[in-house]
Design a protein around this nucleic acid. Structure first.
Lengths: 220, 220, 220, 220
DNA sequence: TATGAATGAGATTTCATTCAT
DNA sequence: CATGAATGAAATCTCATTCAT
């Protein structure tokens, strides 16, 4: 037993590393595939081919296609969970500017996961109730960084709103819209101008009148 | 002969009525089905069962499953095309209040077609390019009433924005969000309060400062 | 009873006439349809539309689709049963020339029923054993006029063959081939030259050497 | 590495062998099925059951039902493309005897693929234009060996005909007829006597009079 | 007699999943 | 651990046939 254990430890570590590596490989393949073929043509066979593995192997790392879809979606939410705090680290203290930085980061992540984002809207059908719930929770968590800056802004008198939740969610929607309605927005805008326009519009609704001049650069 | 004619007309009328009736019955069944099972389980068999007809019959009224989905989606857009002008008829002259009335009507239609609205986001994959294009066009047209009021407001100096298109589209997104994220919003709000909150938020970003007092009721 | 009978007679005659008329109308429609769309696209709906009647009506005159196909096929065989004897009426006494006349008539009927002829080869699948048998019998009967002339020719010493049956059937095949392989033969020939070429070839194999000069016109 | 290579080759060979084996198995099953049920009941389900595999598997080896039908038909034409030249290898130099050998081989192949031959006449409807064209071309190619011997015979003065094409095609028709009208011919003949009778009949029409005695054995 | 709306069995095809190797 | 051949349920669509009007 003890012998087995002491032998197993490095083996288990290796296994975990492999699992990690394979999962990444598959999720990346899924992303690449959707980016290239659209977020629909994701058959297990196509995924296997793209990842350069066999169909059978996918089932050693994901229990079902549902699992894969779930993982792809969670991947985006994970990316947000990582990118949003990271954006705040380099951001100034000013809550409004922190809000701007967070929104910018949000949109940037969505942009680089456009097709995966669509999955959330498109394939939630194939997910069971529990997973759908967990995705909703994770999505709500991505609102927290936005809400934090919003509340700070309000308590410092820079922002005015009695419904920070709604504002935060609207900002998330605006970010998602870049993926959902890219066919429309990309006709006349690039990501950068989309972000600044939406931000200006949103902020004009909540920045306290007497501080508007301070954020002139953001408000227009 | 004249008799035949006068007899024939009712026959053709009857047929047209039947076509109308069946189409409605099937579209309603589709809506009901999606309401109950989620907008996923829309198999032709399920649709037939729900409508209380045979599978074969569906194909007398719709050429394909795609046709059905398209019709369901267009149904919402038609409802909007009817409801938005209607809402403006009873509305006051004031562009801002007309904008508010239009948005309210928009949200109300979306609310009564919540699950059909999801289809646009979920099943556009099964539609061919041409139909997808037509849907986009129809959706863009629903922006016109909003944009009209917006431009009137701007030219009368009541509203300030250099990107009426973006504002209009954001309003549409807000309306769609009621369907897309109803699991979230309905937790704390009903439709009416959702509308007034979103409207207040949006208007605060665009009403000219010197006229804000005039719309105090909408801005809060 | 007697009363009913005496009243019924004209009615029954009228009915029979109607049945006759409808059947013709439907068979003609089937022929037209197959000529235009190919011998495949013969759905009951298409047939009804072509004939200008309702699907339901077809079933008053034919018990099933099988019945219709059977009737179409028999129609060709009937045409042959009529045309072949008719051709012999005007033909000279000479058995060889009578054979030629019969073959010419055979090919001419096949030509005007090309697509119906294909049905015999193509759709015998949908026919039950009994009907298939009856068609075979009728087809064999179309060989009789050919065989009659052949045997006369042999007994008069004009033709030489110990297997009149085979010769007759080969002639029938040649006639059918005009329909079966029209894609090939029509590239380089019209019906008339096809008939004379095949006839020449066939006769060269059976005309008694010493009488060949007598039929020089047919043999070349 | 070299080891991997030497290991890989057998793997690929094994796969090719499997593909070969499955294709054969399926084509044979199709033939058997048609032999037993008639060349009609060729549903994919029936084919799968007959071959002892699942429906899905068929689609790994043939892209569609059309593909299967096409392969079955081409199978016969391939057999002819192989058998006809082979028959000529062992044949004497004499063009007439070579013609006889080719015709005999043709009929023999048709006999062993009787029901598949029917497919060409029966199911060409389900094939698209391009495939139909390719089949016609392949069929025309099977006429070449016949035509070669015919032309040789003509240039050597053994045969007389000004339309070798027609003669060749008639011979093909006679061979096909063994499959098409086996219900008739098998009543009174076996394959061997069918071949010799037809051959005698055909040759009598084209062998030059002064050489008839030389081929007395073939001419009767 | 005539209609044609309605039926439903059956056909083809796809694709997530399993399992022997 | 890895493969990919094999499975079979499910989905869409067609069309001969029926039957109420």
């Amino acid at each position: 037993m003890t012998q087995t254990e002491s032998i197993d430890h490095p083996q288990q570590a290796a296994r975990r590393a492999l699992v990690e590596h394979r999962s990444r490989q598959l999720l990346d393949a899924a992303a690449t595939l959707m980016e290239r073929e659209g977020s629909e043509a994701v058959s297990m066979q196509a995924l296997a081919t793209e990842a350069g593995v066999s169909v059978g192997l996918i089932y050693r790392y994901f229990g079902s296609k549902e699992d894969v879809l779930y993982a792809v979606i969670v991947d985006v939410l994970d990316a947000l969970a990582t990118a949003l705090p990271a954006a705040l680290e380099d951001a100034p203290q000013d809550p409004v500017r922190r809000l701007a930085a967070t929104f910018t980061a949000y949109c940037t992540v969505i942009d680089s996961h456009r097709h995966s984002t669509l999955l959330t809207y498109r394939e939630s059908k194939s997910l069971d109730a529990e997973r759908r719930e967990r995705i909703k929770d994770l999505e709500l968590e991505t609102a927290q960084p936005l809400m934090g800056s919003l509340r700070d802004g309000v308590s410092e008198g820079l922002l005015v709103t009695d419904d920070a939740e709604l504002v935060a969610y609207d900002l998330i929607l605006m970010a998602h819209a870049w993926a959902l309605k890219s066919w429309y927005f990309t006709k006349t805008r690039d990501l950068e101008s989309y972000i600044s326009s939406q931000l200006a519009l949103a902020l004009r609704g909540i920045v306290a009148p007497k501080h508007r001049s301070r954020y002139a650069d953001l408000l227009h």
